[in-house]
Design a protein around this nucleic acid. Structure first.
Lengths: 194, 194
DNA sequence: CATAATTCTGAAAGTTACTGTCAAATGATA
DNA sequence: TATCATTTGACAGTAACTTTCAGAATTATG
């Protein structure tokens, strides 16, 4: 048996407390003006502990746990679906699980990320990891190599498309996130005509 | 008349000297293991001077002067050419001006950038600036707003396409850079089929 | 229940990237 | 040559991150 256990619960709680206090402080004073010491103190931990949870300052905003979800949902898609269809469905399925509060939290985070260069840089970097993940899965499915130029190009386009959609949604947005993503993917599939 | 003048010539020279020594040291000891102090000393300047030329350490590798060239070449394209055609031509024209040594230097820089996370992050960030630039030009040409979703999506796709091509070329590459880029853009125009 | 093993935490000291200020040096200009 | 603007270097300071180590809390084991 490997139930959650007190230790793990405490860890998750601490992680969320740090993240919450950090976002609050960033809102109040700005990202750069907030030091790790302040965040640590507000969360009732030591700076060392902060770094144990978030290797770099940016991660307290950028880190998320979506990658494994994406993998799970992607693998549950019908094997004969074309890759672009499959990925579109993955997002739809994923978003269907989110609540309105989830979206609101994500929106705040995304806005912060796009406003602070350091956060944006970190997120772009994290995105390339997701890209590799997708490339591996797509390659598997289409019986090609993950190094194949078209496979890498395909995944790069899809991921970049997502980012444009998220950016648009977070800023303009009374529109639905799924709707914006669909518009982008349709545009992509049509060969980005202008 | 506005000839270079001694002062400017010296500035360019210093800039190149710093860059050269930095790249040499990075090759020898690795990026992280090389301090700004070492670079400054090798280039015969003070650390403060280093920062005057390169606001952040990453810029000594990532900074380039291509953006204005892109603008110039783009504006010299026939006004009735479709945007994707125009951008393809821009790159072809640009690369035609480069020598074999240029390509070799670029290749070394690109490999370094893709190997060091901090450099990659900075470059991705810089890329978004280029993206905005392109968006403005493309918007102008097609009589749309730079905020238009399709315009932003189009430019994001083209830029992301370039990056995949450059990455591929720098690593695999006995193939021509222009050829790889063409393959990517063709794939994009076809709606990234797999 | 008691003790051993594992994991988590905090304190402290050190490195380095980066910022700001000010005076000295150097190139431009009249 | 004399004055003006720009560039540079020295210095001091901040804060992000790293490393190390000892002690505390939690879990596993006899």
């Amino acid at each position: 048996m490997n139930r959650p256990g007190l230790r793990e619960r405490k860890k998750i709680e601490t992680l969320h407390r740090i993240q919450g206090e950090a976002l609050r402080l960033f809102d109040e004073q700005g990202y750069d003006a907030t030091t790790i010491e302040q965040i640590a103190e507000a969360a009732g931990v030591s700076p060392s502990t902060f770094y144990r949870y978030f290797p770099v300052k940016e991660d307290v905003v950028v880190q998320d746990e979506y990658d494994p979800m994406i993998v799970r949902v992607f693998e549950s898609q019908p094997a004969d679906a074309p890759p672009l269809e499959a990925l579109r469905a993955v997002l739809a399925d994923l978003f269907a699980q989110f609540t309105a509060e989830d979206f609101e939290r994500i929106r705040r985070r995304v806005r912060l990320i796009f406003a602070v260069p350091a956060l944006r840089a970190r997120q772009l970097q994290q995105t390339t990891a997701t890209e590799r993940l997708l490339a591996a899965m797509v390659a598997e499915r289409s019986g090609r190599s993950p190094e194949d130029l078209e496979v890498r190009h395909f995944t790069a386009m899809v991921v970049a498309s997502w980012i444009v959609a998220i950016d648009t949604w977070a800023h303009a947005g009374d529109e639905d996130l799924v709707a914006v993503m669909d518009r982008c993917l349709v545009h992509l599939e049509a060969g980005v005509p202008l």
